[in-house]
Computed example of a mutant assay.
Amino acid sequence: MADSDSTSPAGLNPEEIRQAIVSGDPSRALPALVELRRLEAEQAVPLLLLGLEQEPFIVRSISCAGLGLKRNEAGWEALTAALRGDEDANVRAEAANALASYGVERAWPLLRQSFAADDQWLVRCSILSALAEQPGIDPRLLLELARMAISDADGSVRVGGAEILGRVVRDAAASPGLVESAEAARQALIGLQQDADHRVVAAALNGLQG
């Protein structure tokens, strides 16, 4: 029987997984990448990095997701490069989501910069969602991000911004030191009731009622 450290539960050893990843066939590569969740980071990350070098965007996207689960410095550097330079918005969006898993303190400057520089709605929505899910994030950071989002031309991004404003109203109102942030978020939500996109209006109303 193969050693458990060198063989995944599905029966593929790291070399077989590597061959599947570089095969150029997503139907082989994706199951192999999923198996890497069961390996230790020191085994999984080099193979995930290899996945990021492959041509099919879906292979690169799943590799980014894996690097968000198997975290180390090599993964951080690779995700940063993908966020800044991958040609496919799906990959950049997945990289942003994975980077957020490294923690707000480290990821915030990079994700904020990317939000401002990358005008693809998918990337911006991924950043909004990833940061909104962070339980301990400073409401003032969320307010800054939401203000950028609600000025976006894309309605989906503005919806995400409105939803974050609603969270700021709820979270900041409970803290005496954040009353100004809560009021600023509330005023922004009031303004969004005039938005041309009915989805944004609905999100604004929900934020004010919450």
Rank of each mutant, 00 (worst) to 15 (best):
V201P: 00
E55M: 14
G11T: 07
R140G: 04
E40F: 13
A182T: 06
R124F: 09
E53V: 11
V104W: 08
V157D: 01
D88R: 12
R147E: 15
G24R: 11
G160N: 04
V169Q: 00
E94V: 02
P176M: 09
Q187S: 15
R199E: 02
I137M: 14
E77A: 15
S114P: 01
D138S: 06
E87C: 10
A95L: 05
V168K: 01
A2L: 13
P14W: 09
R112G: 04
L30A: 12
E105A: 15
R92S: 06
A74W: 04
L33C: 08
D197W: 03
A174R: 15
I190D: 09
L99F: 06
C64F: 04
P56C: 10
F57M: 12
A162G: 06
P31Q: 11
I62V: 15
D25F: 14
A185Y: 01
E42R: 09
S175F: 11
L143W: 02
R199T: 03
V200P: 00
L52T: 03
L30T: 04
G155L: 07
G66P: 01
E183N: 11
S151D: 15
G11A: 13
V34E: 12
D154Q: 15
A146E: 00
G85D: 08
L122P: 02
I137F: 03
A32F: 04
E144I: 04
D154M: 12
L67C: 06
A173Y: 09
D119E: 15
L83P: 02
G177F: 13
L30V: 15
I127R: 00
E15G: 05
G11F: 12
A185D: 05
A78M: 07
Q134S: 11
G75W: 02
R147K: 12
N90L: 13
P14A: 13
A82M: 08
D86G: 03
R186T: 09
A98P: 00
R186N: 07
L128V: 03
D197Y: 08
V91F: 02
G155A: 11
C64L: 03
V91C: 03
D197S: 07
P109I: 10
G166W: 00
L83W: 03
S101D: 09
G191F: 07
L39I: 03
A184L: 10
L69F: 14
A188R: 03
L122M: 14
S23G: 07
L33M: 12
M1G: 12
A81R: 14
G136L: 13
P26C: 09
P9T: 13
S129G: 10
A202C: 06
L128S: 02
P9D: 10
A100T: 04
L67V: 10
L99Q: 02
I190Q: 14
A41K: 04
F115S: 01
V45W: 02
D152I: 05
A93F: 07
A100H: 00
L208R: 00
S126W: 05
I150H: 00
Q19G: 12
Q209T: 11
L79H: 02
R106K: 14
V159G: 01
L208W: 05
L30R: 00
L99P: 02
G66Y: 02
L12C: 08
G161A: 08
G161C: 03
E163T: 05
A203S: 06
T7H: 07
L12F: 12
A29R: 01
I150E: 00
R199Q: 07
A172H: 02
